[in-house]
């Protein structure tokens, strides 16, 4: 028994290190990708100066952020103020532990994987609140208030859109959900549950505060919302966690609806990564295409459209299963 625990511990620690590296690497790739795609959509080259085709731009950005002065606003509770970015980042790392990247590439295979991800991503709101409250800035406060109402509201349709898949597969285990789907695209849940997928995707955008739902940090209204006052690494951590949550959302979407690591010919992590990045690219595409919605519109979309539709979808699914 003594052998068993340390091995699990070792796996967990190695896994944590690996996920940290994965998060960092993804952030680097995504920063570059986001800027390049934005450039493509804007009909401009995007980053081009640092390294060939600007490939070193994310590193330059990172270096700049590390080199910036760490600044705490006057009268702020500095402990909580600096705790907030960490609270935002830490749960993201945990979530990656349960994601099955490939048939043999999963750090912890647990029966409650999906619940774990849902639980830990919810903690992010708390970070947002603390950041907004301790910044001693009215814009931050408004941003935090928006963030709370937004994520509390959108968590409901998100859960409701995930439920049909759980009913279909009868498990919370992400690995099992992935293997429940076939290798070919028409065997994926996106075919049987298109509405759930759309709702899930919209909610994922809203939960990760991505445009057109980036209201907590709407720069034309609230300057930068909850992270107005953050500089240097504090801002970098928020930035990093935003990308991390984007990746998590894309991962969950890929597993639940697109068959995870299953794919034509040979299953493997390459299919998974490809699907994740397709979803991420769609997110980036949407961000650079649409204007921002208004706050009341955002909540109306949630309460008047997404929740009833999700419930309807759930009921239909249940009816079909029962029959």
């Amino acid at each position: 028994m003594i052998e068993a625990i340390p091995i699990q511990l070792v796996i967990m620690l190695v896994g944590l290190a690996a996920t940290m590296a994965f998060v960092g690497l993804n952030a680097i790739v995504l920063v570059y990708l986001e800027r390049k795609v934005a450039g493509f959509i804007h009909r401009r080259p995007g980053p081009y100066e640092v390294g060939p085709h600007g490939i070193l731009q994310p590193f330059a950005d990172g270096l700049k952020l590390v080199g910036k002065q760490i600044f705490t606003p006057k009268g702020a509770d500095s402990f909580l103020y600096w705790l907030a970015p960490m609270i935002s980042m830490a749960p993201a790392v945990v979530c990656f532990l349960v994601i099955p990247f490939g048939p043999h590439l999963q750090i912890i295979n647990t029966n409650v994987g999906l619940v774990l991800i849902l639980a830990f991503t919810g903690v992010n709101v708390l970070a947002l609140c603390i950041a907004g409250w301790t910044s001693q800035n009215k814009y931050s406060l408004l941003g935090a208030a928006r963030g709370v109402s937004q994520s509390v509201a959108y968590e409901i349709p998100l859960l409701l859109s995930v439920l049909p898949i759980i009913f279909l597969t009868g498990t919370f285990n992400l690995f099992d959900i992935a293997t429940n789907q076939g290798s070919w695209p028409w065997q994926w849940f996106v075919v049987t549950q298109p509405l759930a997928f759309i709702i899930f995707f919209i909610c994922a955008l809203a939960e990760t505060n991505r445009a057109p739902f980036d209201l907590p940090e709407a720069e034309s209204e609230l300057t930068a919302g909850f992270h107005t006052e953050y500089s240097g690494m504090g801002f970098a951590l928020f930035f990093l966690s935003e990308y991390a949550y984007m990746v998590i959302a894309a991962c969950v979407g890929a597993i639940l609806f697109l068959g995870g690591f299953k794919g034509p010919i040979v299953d493997g992590w390459w299919w998974f990564l490809a699907k994740v990045y397709i979803l991420l690219l769609i997110m980036i595409w949407i961000r650079w295409t649409f204007p921002r919605v208004r706050f009341d519109q955002l909540l109306n979309i949630c309460w008047k459209w997404l929740i009833p539709l999700a419930i309807l979808n759930l009921l239909i699914t249940l009816l079909v299963i029962a029959l």
Binding site: A38, H42, R43, R44, P212, A218, W288, T289, P291
Partner: peptide, 16 residues
Amino acid sequence: YLLDLGAFTPIMYAFD
């Protein structure tokens, strides 16, 4: 104006 409304891209086209 569209930048104010949160759409970044049009200003690039306008500058074109």
